[in-house]
Design a protein around this nucleic acid. Structure first.
Lengths: 387, 387
DNA sequence: GGACAGTTTGCAATCGATTGCAATAGGACT
DNA sequence: AGTCCTATTGCAATCGATTGCAAACTGTCC
């Protein structure tokens, strides 16, 4: 067995030392070792240990210095156009990408954004909530378009200190936090430390960082007004108002009742978590006792609405004739359950893009205000009565 | 305006040059600026430009060299225990994290895994597919536990060449590809380049990389056998068999029919995409013509099943008495639609963990075989007849 | 040809953590 | 005290891309 050391990364060298990778001198051709099979069981698939080209290699091939190659790849106009073209062509021919870690270290920019899904510490809200994941996809695609990578993690397992883990250690240039939980102190720490970040949720007006979200209050108002227009007279509210977004939806619920001159009955507001299961159980345990005068439910999410609807249908309640139902989110399945679910649609496309845009502006040092996106009521079978 | 140069990053220095950051002696705030302030009007507004500590700072505070501090933080036993303890305490007191980009550059390891959601190029399969996102959450949490960060992107916007973008440029140490699309050539390129990666999907036996997924064939067989046991005699299959996973499910469907001595009717297999919408339309357009002798549907996903069910119910077909239905995936809403949906449950917890485990072994250079996870049939209202 | 101005390029330093190897320190033994 | 062995520590180089500033080159004018 023979070894060579030059032009290979420490990883490969250590594999050689460990006997994992072995090669024979005569198998080398050019800068790749070609042989992938051996006749004497003394070789490995050397192709997988091929040297990765560095900028220095590209520079040498182009006959310029590394600094010129670097500037040419970045299309810097101080470099002559012909030189730029030449370097870029050689790089493209080799599918060359600069070493991202070297670049980050030198520029102090990782071009990476950390997205943290913030769960309520006490409940089992799940990443399978389709709404969460819808917006996540938009963010991922938009960041890619803007030349950024996206790190994803959840608050269940994330290191306690987002500032040092993501920002100080240069893993990310900024953070997007999805959700507000119950006023997680880690968000406050980010704000105090001056880390660039934005939050998807509901603004209450005194944050020192941008909060972007739907007009939850208006959405709830539209939903409850619609129920009242359908002739409903007693509307329950399912959702945990200890969460800011849900609290805003409750305010909108109250607005609609107030305008109709109806009382707000505390017994008709149930804190449920974000799962269909909890809503199913709470509807059985609590709301059935309000029948038959209860004739509508506004649920703070579609998952909650579907759990409640299941309980009602099993109980023989006719939806929407005896009890009408509206959810919030327009998850993919809402149109395809039976009866199809009326819901408030959040504009996740616009929301995800605005989150990214706002964060990139924060990273540039700009002051970015909080923002609210309009919502839309989708009326489907669950709330459309034959009057 | 006054300037100082020492101990600040190029980013801050450039902000000073650009006049973005301005300073005045009277803006000094406490201990941040003290070490850098002097009595000759050379100050900085340190609160908002606070210097991030480097390992060199920790070493100085501990009275050791940088190399000792580095080894001590990593708990390297060549360093005396008292020294290790001291350095670790100082680092913890300052919430110090090493600069990840510096470490990656030196070690040639990013400790980051890229997760790519591979969509079929032609269809509009959406990231809101709850099954996809379920497994994604497990992967995120498991990678975090193993000390890795997770990059997320979708194949819609990802650079064409995953090898150079993620691997060669050192953004990621390995890749997890979720889904197989229709034999995306980018996956082949990864395999040829010897990049460590694993795929979630169905193995067909001749891959050169590990494919991890559920036992699709067995799952489908269980579902169809269950339908036959419920007295069904003509079962349709909804799902796009050009996808390997769905093809395996079709094989299991065929297995069950064969064992019952029933013919496989090609007209009863419809290629639908992964959305409830396409299934809804195809059920209306094609399957209604098979009524009333068609008495069951096996759908290759729960979303497809729910679209088909909606069409059937609207058409006045009683589910399951006239036509029974089973899906695949056990998405969160399956138990809460009406009737609740029978389905084949994939073990996303075990799957996500196995993907991570397999990939980390690949990164270590180990040969890792493909693997299949057992599935489970959940019988709910949509397929349980009163016989 | 020389001077000047503008353009282009390259040298060398930098970023911050890690690690090979040599130097140093400490303890045990004679 | 001197020698030997082991443990501990620090120096200096490295990783690969970027960038400030000086040097070199090119073109124009006198």
């Amino acid at each position: 067995m023979h070894t060579i050391a030059e032009n290979f990364s420490p990883n490969f060298s250590s594999q050689l030392s460990a006997g994992v990778a072995s090669i024979a001198a005569r198998d080398l051709i050019g800068h790749y070792a070609v042989s992938t099979a051996n006749k004497t069981n003394r070789y490995v698939v050397v192709k997988e240990c091929a040297k990765v080209l560095t900028l220095a290699d590209i520079a040498r091939l182009a006959g310029v210095s590394e600094s010129t190659a670097s500037r040419a790849l970045r299309d810097n106009p101080v470099i002559n156009a012909a030189t730029r073209e030449k370097v870029q062509q050689i790089a493209a021919a080799h599918q060359f990408k600069v070493n991202a870690t070297a670049r980050s270290l030198r520029t102090q920019k990782s071009h990476t954004i950390a997205v943290i899904i913030l769960f309520d510490a006490k409940t089992q809200q799940s990443i399978t909530d389709p709404f969460l994941l819808d917006i996540l996809g938009v963010i991922a695609d938009e960041l890619t378009r803007q030349g950024y990578d996206m790190l994803l993690s959840t608050s269940k397992t994330t290191d306690k200190d987002w500032r040092s883990y993501y920002f100080d250690s240069k893993r990310a240039d900024g953070l997007i936090v999805i959700g507000q939980g119950e006023h997680d102190e880690r968000v406050q720490q980010l704000a105090e430390a001056g880390v660039p970040f934005v939050v998807w949720g509901a603004a209450n007006g005194d944050e020192t960082f941008p909060v972007i979200g739907s007009d939850n209050r208006q959405g709830a108002r539209l939903a409850v007004e619609h129920l009242l227009h359908q002739g409903c007279q007693r509307v329950a509210f399912l959702g945990d108002i200890r969460h800011t977004e849900i609290e805003m939806r409750y305010l909108g619920y109250q607005d609609a009742l107030a305008q109709a001159g109806l009382p707000v009955e505390p017994a008709l507001q149930l804190n449920t978590d974000f799962t269909a299961q909890d809503a199913y159980l709470k509807t059985q345990q609590v709301l059935f006792q309000q029948l038959p005068t209860l004739d509508a439910i506004f649920a703070a999410s579609d998952a909650i609405a579907m759990g409640a609807m299941k309980a009602l249908l099993e109980h023989g309640v006719q939806v929407p004739q005896q009890l009408a139902l509206v959810g919030f989110d327009d998850i993919a399945m809402s149109a395809y359950c039976t009866p199809s679910l009326s819901t408030v649609k959040q504009d996740t496309q616009a929301g995800g893009k605005l989150l990214v845009s706002a964060l990139l502006q924060r990273i540039q040092g700009a002051a970015v205000p909080s923002a609210q996106l309009p919502v839309r009521l989708l009326c489907r079978q669950s709330s459309l009565r034959q009057l």
